[in-house]
Simulated assay, not measured.
Amino acid sequence: MKYSLASGLQPPFTQRESFVRSHPDLYWRNKGIAAYEQNRATDAITAFRRAARYADKPSQAMIAQMLWVGDGVPMDRVMGYVWADLAAERGYPAFIATREKFWHELDRDEQRQAVVVGQAVFDEYGDEVAKKREDKALLLARRQITGSRTGHVGALIVSLRLPNGDFETVDGALYYADKYWKPEQYWEWQDSLFEKLPEGKVEVGPLQMPPKR
């Protein structure tokens, strides 16, 4: 299975700067990807950690991979596993495959260390606390942009600047659809992009890092 930071079809506007800036998980993930592709590993892992604080599982998976192999950062197999365990918290298949692979490659001492040090990482970056940061950011951004305390959009047309300087317009009802801005629906949307494991026996191939450009 080829590793990617997102899967599934997404409307183009979800990649536009104005949309991403209102979603700190996506914003910092994109910063991390850009830095990684430019071989700026220190900047990349810093950005991924910031995205991770907003419950971004792909960023947590990238940190795991970088630590596991020492990709631009000191190799740390124990912490690589811990971050892989965190990334697999929601049951996304590719991330579970990586976690299990890492665990079986640790020796017994490393496994014991991972159990001990892992709790502190979950305390700061686990969904129980990290999702709340993202939820707050989403609700605040939607309220500020629509100008309504209830988040009512009305007959709104959103104009977005494209990288080439042109503009595209998006129906406000689509741009401000609940799945992009309301916490419960937002997390359901994220789950749909990364596909949880169905019930039954599922075989998943090993996770691979994207090639550097």
Rank of each mutant, 00 (worst) to 15 (best):
Y54L: 02
Q111N: 06
W103A: 01
K132D: 15
E105R: 00
D127S: 15
V20H: 10
M66S: 00
N39R: 12
A94V: 11
E100Q: 08
W68E: 01
V73Q: 05
A64H: 00
V116M: 05
I33E: 00
T42E: 09
D43N: 04
E110Y: 12
F95G: 02
M62A: 08
I33V: 08
T98R: 04
F95N: 02
G72N: 09
D123L: 12
L106Q: 01
N39W: 07
A64N: 00
A137N: 14
Y92H: 09
L67M: 00
Y92P: 08
A120V: 10
Y27M: 05
K101L: 06
F95E: 04
A130Q: 14
K31A: 11
A97I: 03
A120H: 13
V129F: 15
V78S: 09
G70Q: 07
D71C: 08
T42N: 10
T146V: 03
A94K: 12
A44N: 03
G80K: 03
F19V: 00
A52V: 06
E37G: 11
E89T: 14
K132N: 15
K31D: 12
Y125C: 06
M79N: 12
F122T: 02
R143F: 11
Y81M: 02
I96K: 04
D107Y: 10
Y27F: 11
T98S: 05
V82R: 04
A114S: 11
R133H: 15
R49I: 01
K31N: 12
A52D: 08
G91P: 08
Q38I: 06
P58R: 11
A141T: 07
M75C: 13
A55Q: 05
R90D: 10
Q113L: 02
P24M: 03
F95R: 03
Q111A: 09
D123V: 12
P93Q: 13
A137K: 13
A137C: 15
M66C: 00
K136E: 15
E105V: 00
D85Y: 06
W68P: 04
